[in-house]
């Protein structure tokens, strides 16, 4: 579903991604872990072309993201085509980013109406089903400011799902939440993995990585240091940097 080949990204003089190679199969869940500033979020934002990459290639569902290859060159796509690609990739943000001027339901139907040109009746019906799925049926008409962080994030997940994405990206979805609200969001995400959604999750929730991920990749300073099945990665990391990071995280959390 996702194939990254030697992806590079630089901001002015600082190289934040120094050649990322990664593959995620359809239906697989990958957790990206690593210290802050290691480039995890940037990499995630490259996958749906919110950030341009400077070298390398990103394929989603066999299609090159954001560019067209002709001869030796990559030409950036027309914005319309970029939009079409993004519509198939769902994204959930650390700070939820719900639209504050719209109710929960309106947040969900906005893109299906405006981008997919679905009928209002159909979009609303599907939005209600999604709200049910994330346990938010009773808050359909509430504005985001009336919802807790956990509730907002669940609506944000429903909003992304409304576009029927092939791939879901989660950018630290529980980092901005009060501790007691983390569980409800993780439960919704676990539900998605059971439904076979392909997911890439940037997270510090090691328990989630251990029991929900098919593989875990550890990133540091713009490279993927190592990756593998969660059990092996989290219990028996091979690299010193991974070990140091895990001991800090787990030491800090338990």
């Amino acid at each position: 579903m996702l194939r990254a080949q030697d992806v590079h990204k630089r901001y002015r003089h600082e190289e934040v991604l120094k050649g990322i190679d990664l593959e995620v199969a359809s239906g697989e869940v990958l957790c990206l872990i690593g210290p802050s500033g290691s480039g995890k979020s940037t990499f995630l934002r490259c996958i749906n072309h919110l950030e341009r990459i400077d070298a390398g290639r990103l394929y989603v569902d066999g299609q090159l993201v954001g560019y067209r290859e002709r001869g030796d060159c990559l030409y950036e796509m027309h914005p319309r085509e970029v939009c079409r690609q993004r519509a198939d990739i769902g994204m959930v943000f650390q700070r939820f980013n719900l639209f504050p001027h719209l109710t929960a339901l309106e947040n969900i139907i906005e893109a299906p109406l405006q981008v997919r040109r679905e009928s209002r009746a159909l979009a609303t019906e599907r939005a209600r089903a999604l709200l049910e799925r994330v346990g938010m049926s009773d808050k359909a008409d509430a504005y985001p400011s009336r919802l807790s962080g956990g509730q907002q994030q669940r609506v944000a997940i429903a909003r992304a799902l409304a576009m029927r994405p092939k791939l879901m990206l989660f950018d630290e979805p529980t980092s901005a939440l009060d501790p007691e609200l983390v569980g409800e969001v993780l439960n919704v995400m676990r539900g998605l993995t059971e439904d076979g959604m392909t997911m890439i999750v940037v997270t510090h929730e090691m328990a989630f990585a251990r029991d929900a991920a098919d593989s875990v990749a550890f990133m540091d300073a713009g490279v993927i240091v190592e990756s593998g099945p969660p059990e092996e990665m989290l219990s028996h990391p091979r690299h010193e940097r991974t070990r140091a990071f895990l001991s800090r995280i787990i030491g800090g959390r338990q």
Binding site: R45, N48, L50, F93, L98, A111, A156, A160, M163
Partner: peptide, 15 residues
């Protein structure tokens, strides 16, 4: 907030 624009674009909206 800039995140609003990110969220809109990520849903496939044009600028």
């Amino acid at each position: 907030d800039r995140g609003q624009n990110d969220a809109a674009l990520a849903l496939g909206m044009s600028q």
